[in-house]
């Protein structure tokens, strides 16, 4: 599970630079939350494109933690020449005034999608591509809002487990308080990832790494002493969130269908 952070840094800098500039873009936007993933993504993008070409967006809601906001501003000043702060309290509150709900998850998803809609709006205004910040753990467990924080054009962290993002963050020397912070989507006060998922990142990462990266059998993993309930919980989360990791499905009707037998790479001709 340990990575060579120097090699990863170098690889991802090339990845970001290549996958953005080949489409004729110079700039990138990303949502900065004051958390680990968006900070690491911002550091890498800043190194890849230069400080003048990264535009971080800080998009607080009234319940967002003040501490996260301060940290996000601190990071924005390190990685970019300018950033924008867009408060979404008004539009979210109007929406839920007209469409009331008590479900925290609905509100959280709405906030995540509002943020993404703003990030994509800014990507058009700034002629910039959207950098994703979802890591491999979140993607595999489905811990993210579909078409919300999971949406992006280029995602440098999608093949790194949370544990590995921590290693990379330490190597990149991101501010200490961000590495030490308890991971949270900060969609409501007191929310933490690990409590909401019902599993610690460290253990989830180990189980995922063994099953996916090392192709171990469930039997082997249980034999090594991993908790049966946790292993099956992880497997269930991966399976039930598969839809979030694919493009919307299309009914095959014709003799040549997008994604099925019309097969062209995304980077076609660029």
């Amino acid at each position: 599970m340990n990575i060579n952070p120097e090699l990863v840094e170098r690889t991802l800098i090339h990845f970001i630079r290549d996958e953005i500039t080949k489409f004729g873009f110079k700039k990138a936007v990303l949502g900065l939350s004051g958390g680990l993933d968006s900070t690491v993504a911002a550091y890498l993008t800043s190194k890849a494109l230069g400080k003048n070409n990264l535009i971080p967006l800080i998009i607080p809601y009234k319940s967002s933690s003040k501490k996260n906001m301060d940290d996000a501003i601190k990071v924005a000043k390190i990685v970019a020449e300018k950033h924008h702060i867009i408060n979404i309290t008004e539009q979210i509150d109007i929406y839920f005034k007209n469409n009331p709900t008590e479900e925290k998850l609905f509100i959280g998803n709405k906030i995540a999608r509002e943020r993404m809609s703003i990030i994509f709006d800014y990507s058009a205004r700034e002629k910039a591509m959207v950098i994703g910040t979802s890591n491999k753990t979140e993607l595999l467990l489905g811990y993210g809002t579909w078409f919300g924080d999971l949406a992006s054009s280029v995602n440098p962290l999608g093949d790194l487990y949370k544990t590995q993002v921590f290693q990379l963050a330490a190597h990149l020397k991101v501010p200490e308080q961000i590495i030490k912070k308890t991971p949270s989507a900060d969609l409501w006060p007191g929310q933490t990832d690990e409590e909401e998922m019902g599993i610690m990142y460290k253990i989830a990462d180990e189980i995922l790494y063994l099953i996916i990266d090392k192709r171990k059998s469930v039997k082997d993993i249980l034999d090594w002493g991993y908790d049966e309930d946790l292993v099956f919980k992880v497997l269930k989360m991966v399976k039930s969130s598969q839809f979030k990791r694919t493009m919307p499905i299309i009914a095959k009707l014709s003799h040549r269908t997008i994604g099925k037998d019309f097969l062209y790479p995304r980077d076609w001709g660029v």
């Binding site: 690889t11 090339h14 990845f15 290549d18 996958e19 980077d267």
Partner: peptide, 9 residues
Amino acid sequence: RVGFEDGFG
């Protein structure tokens, strides 16, 4: 070769 294509480096 070098360069990325659809995320393959």
